[in-house]
Simulated assay, not measured.
Amino acid sequence: MARQLRNGQRAELYVIDVETAEPTLRYSSDTLLFEAPNWSPDGSSLLINGDGGLFQLGVDAGELQEIFLGGIAEINNDHVIGPDGRTAFVSSEDGHIYAVGLAAGSAGPRRVTNDNGPHFKHYLHGVSPDGSWLAYIGLALNDGQVRTNVYVLPVAGGADVQLTDDAHPDDGAEFSPDGQWIYFNSERGSTVPGHAQLFRMSVSGGTPEQLTHDERVNWFPHPSPDGTRLAYVSFPPGTLGHPEDVDVQVRILEKDGTTVTLAEVFGGQGTMNVPSWDPTGTRIAIVAYPMDDH
């Protein structure tokens, strides 16, 4: 069942100027828990999920417009927009990734992922700059043990390519703007359970490079359009996983390795799970989930 708002809670979508850290409230709801904004390649709209469905929202004006999913099982907050702006790729709760046309009259949804067995789920996070590959996290359950690894997959169909193969929890796999790197978060840099940091690795594989080294728990790295910055969600020290309804920071990792805290919100899961930079690299979109008493 899709996540719902708690009593006295709202979902608020903000657009934040990266240079000034000035937030602009674009949309708020006390009935629909929406998550994970994607910015369209032309900069005109945002894509969010809520109540198992997918919605489009104008950046400057307008109301939510639901996207037809053609009978796909309810989706989660792992979705991206292809670089041509005409297709969204979504992760369904049935464990597969689908391509969905965004224009009126588009052909019905197409399943992109292969059948990797009943104990394997695909969690989408990135699409390559040329639109030909998807980056996802494969979750395998074997003998009660969960393993998550980084994979890429051709959009047109073909074999999965596994880039990591170990017991370290990984998530948030996303392409760099030049298509040469995969950014992701992982616990491979720590012996403390849940202590995720940010990494990157070549799309051809190899040893991951650690990018953050601090006491906080860092998730979902999103490279800016020019590749010089990473936006990410930073959880308090000691956080296990990426829970909902906690105080988190939205941070920017600069090219020189310094970090800037752009916002502090009550959120976490759903705040910024997927690529959320505008095409100019000057703004990002996030979701907060304030409570009346918070």
Rank of each mutant, 00 (worst) to 15 (best):
T280M: 07
T239G: 00
G227V: 07
G158T: 01
E66S: 11
Y27P: 01
P193C: 08
A99R: 15
T212N: 04
L32W: 02
S224K: 05
A167G: 08
L5S: 09
L262S: 15
L124N: 05
G194M: 04
F34C: 05
G71T: 05
L32N: 09
S128R: 08
D84F: 02
D245V: 09
V203C: 04
G53W: 13
G82K: 06
D214S: 15
P236S: 11
A288C: 01
Q65K: 13
A73W: 15
V192E: 12
H96F: 14
N116D: 13
N116V: 07
G144L: 03
T207K: 13
D166M: 07
G227Q: 07
V18R: 15
T87I: 14
Q269F: 13
L230N: 12
L124I: 08
N76L: 05
N185W: 00
R86C: 07
T228S: 14
H96S: 15
G101H: 09
S276I: 02
I75F: 08
F89M: 04
N185M: 04
D214L: 06
S29R: 03
T24K: 15
A231L: 09
R229P: 01
D84M: 06
Y123C: 13
L262C: 10
N114A: 13
Y14F: 12
R188H: 06
D292H: 05
G241R: 09
F220W: 14
P169I: 14
R200C: 00
A104L: 12
V287D: 01
R283A: 01
G58S: 05
G62A: 06
G85F: 06
S132N: 12
A156Y: 03
T164E: 00
D30A: 11
G105R: 01
E66Q: 14
T239Q: 01
D160H: 08
K121Y: 14
A88I: 07
P177R: 03
H294D: 03
Q65A: 11
T280F: 02
